[in-house]
Design a protein around this nucleic acid. Sequence first.
DNA 1: TACATTTGCTTAAACGTATAAGCTTTAGGC
DNA 2: GCCTAAAGCTTATACGTTTAAGCAAATGTA
Lengths: 347, 347
Amino acid sequence: MQKRVSLKDIAEKVGVSTALVSYVLNGKEKEARVGEAAAKKIKKVAAEMNYQPNLIARGLKFGKTHTIGLIVADISNPFFAMLARIIELEAQKRGYTVLFGSSDEQLEKSQNLINTFLNRQVDGLIITPVAGSQSQIEVLQDKGVPFVLMDRGFSETETNMVVTDNHDAMYNAVQLLIRNGYKKPGIIAYDTTLTHMTDRIAGYKDALKDSGIRFNAKWLVKVPYGNYKEDVTAALDRFLDVKGSVVDSLVFATNSISVQSLKVIHARGIKVPQDLGVISFDESDVFDFFYAPITYIKQNLQAISENAVQLLMQSIDARSKKYTKVTVPSIIIKGKSSNRSKTSGGG
Amino acid sequence: MQKRVSLKDIAEKVGVSTALVSYVLNGKEKEARVGEAAAKKIKKVAAEMNYQPNLIARGLKFGKTHTIGLIVADISNPFFAMLARIIELEAQKRGYTVLFGSSDEQLEKSQNLINTFLNRQVDGLIITPVAGSQSQIEVLQDKGVPFVLMDRGFSETETNMVVTDNHDAMYNAVQLLIRNGYKKPGIIAYDTTLTHMTDRIAGYKDALKDSGIRFNAKWLVKVPYGNYKEDVTAALDRFLDVKGSVVDSLVFATNSISVQSLKVIHARGIKVPQDLGVISFDESDVFDFFYAPITYIKQNLQAISENAVQLLMQSIDARSKKYTKVTVPSIIIKGKSSNRSKTSGGG
DNA sequence: TACATTTGCTTAAACGTATAAGCTTTAGGC
DNA sequence: GCCTAAAGCTTATACGTTTAAGCAAATGTA
C-alpha cells in the first residue's frame, strides 16, 4: 500500500510546521492567527496531495473513534439484516462507522465480539443480546461503556433498550384470532428468558384472559433455539395429528418459527385458515406464496434502528448513568390466514 | 466510560517503566532480558487490572489495524447476508475485525464507504462492486490498497476476484432445460456490464448454441436494477400473455428476479413446469412453498467467502502487484420446476 | 525611544504502544 | 582490585494528530 500523505508531508512541502497545517485544515485559522498566504498555500498543497486525515491517529488523540460496534444475533435472518442495513445508514449520517459482527445466538461469540470491539475502542455498542449474556452486559454497565440493547433485553436488568411493544403486538394478534371465531389459539415460541419472548408470551396469555378464555398449558410450546426446526415440526405434529386438534389456531412467535411451521403445514396438507388460523410475528418473503396469505405482525424496523442509534449517541455524549427504554409500536398486516369467514372484513 | 488501563497504569503500579511492561506482556522477556521477579509481578498486576491492549494505538504504531472493510451490494439480500456472516467468521479466525457497509447498489454510497474505510486505515477491502464503480476500483489499484472483488467484477480490469463460475453454472442450467424437452428457454437478467451478469448471459447463449438452438433476441430480457419489480412483471407479461408464449421456460439470473417472477407466475396461475419450465440462479426460502419446488443453482457461499478472505490476506501480506482470479464451482439443486415429464429422473 | 501588543509562526507534549539504544549495577575472570 | 561482560532496567523516539504555550518579529502607542 502506498504511503498515505500525512500532515508532516504537507508541512515539509510547504515549509511550515505540522501544527500550522493542522490548524488550517481544521478551519482554526483565526483562533491560531495563521497568515493568509500560508493558509492558502497549505490548503492548495493539501488538495493537490489529496490529504485524508488518519482517523486512527485522531482516535488515539481524542480517545474517540467515531466507531460503533453492532452485534446482531443472526445476520442471516432478514430481520436482522434489515436492521443492520438501516443502522449502518443512520450511523453514517451521524459520522459514525459500524464494526459488525453476528453472534449467531452463541454466548461465546457474543463475548468475543464485545471484547474485540472494546479493544478497538468503539465509542459504543448496539447489541441484540443472546440468551445467558446478562453478565456480559452487566460488565459493560460496570465499565460505563455506552450501549443499547435492541430487539430484546433482560427483565431483571435495567439498560438502554429499544424494543417493539411485544406484549401489545402479541395481545392484538391473539385478540384478532379470537374475534374471528377461533376458540383455542396456541403459540409456538422460543424457550428463553429474553424479554422479547417473555413479553410475547405474556401478551398471548393476557389476550386469552381478557377474552374469557382459560389458558391451557398444552397450547403453549417453547422450543430451544438450537434444534428448532425439528422441535417445531414435532410440536406441530402433536398439535395437529389427532382428529379434533389441540388448537384451532396458532401464533408463531418469530419468522423463523413461522417459516418452518408453514413448511410442515404445507407438507401435511392442513387447510389454513379453515382447519387452522395462523398469525406470524415478523414477516417473510415466503408468506406471499402460501395459498392463504399470512397475517403477520410487522415491526417498525426503521423506528427501531433510528432509536437505537439515537439513544446510543445520547449515551455516548451524555455519559450519564440513566437508562432509557424505548418501545416501538408495530402493526398487524392482515392476510387471509387468520379469518375463516370469507365474508368478514376482519382479516 | 471508565478509563481503560494502559501500560502506564501497570508500570506505575509495579514501579517500572512502560517499556518493561510492554516487553513482558508481548512475551519478549528473554530478548529484553527482563528479570524473573519483575516479569512475574507485571503479569500478575496486568491480570489483576484486566489489562487489554489498545488496538488503536497499536494500529498507529504499526500502520496495520487488523481490520478489513467489507462492502456488500445489498445486505438485505440473504445471499449477501450469508456471505457477510461467513466472511466475518473467517476474518475473525485470522485475527481480523470487519468494518461493514452496504452500498445498496449505489455508486455514491460505495465511494463513501471506500473513503471512510481507507481513512480508518483498514488493511484491505472485500467489495462487491456496483455498476459503474470501475474507476473507484482503479483508484484502489493505483494506491496499492489490497482488495478483493467478490461475486462480480469488471471484464476490462484485472483485479483480485472471487466469483462463482457463472458461465458454467448458467450453461448447465440451460442445458438441463433443453435436455428436459424445452425448446425455447428465455432468461431474465439485470442490465449491467458487471461480469456476473455478462457471464451468465454468455453461458445461456453458449448453451443454446451447443444444443443447436438458435438464439432469439426476444428470449433475453435485461431489466435495470432500479425498478426491477415492475420491469420483471412487465417482462413476464410480455413473455406469457399470449397463447403460444414467446418462451416455454425461463432462467432467472438472480434470486431477487426469481422471487418477483414467481410471485407473478403464481398470481397469473401459470402452470410450472407444464406451461413453463423454471430455474433460478441462487436460492430462496420461498422456493419450498411454490407448488413445484424450484430447481436452482446453488453457489458455494462458504468457498466464496473463504477464498475472498484468504486472497485478501495474501494480498495484504505479499504486497505484490499480481492479481488472482478464483472461480468457484456451483451445483444445481434439482426441484420439479425444470422437468415436465414426471417419470424422468432428470430433474 | 521604550514598551506593549499583535501577528505569525514553532516547539513541546500528549494519546498508548513498541523497540532500539543507553545506562547502571552486579557478577565473573584474572 | 581492576576490567569486562552480562543482567536488568530506563530513556528516547516513533506512529499521526491536536493544541497549549512560547518565541520572535512587526506593529502600535505614548
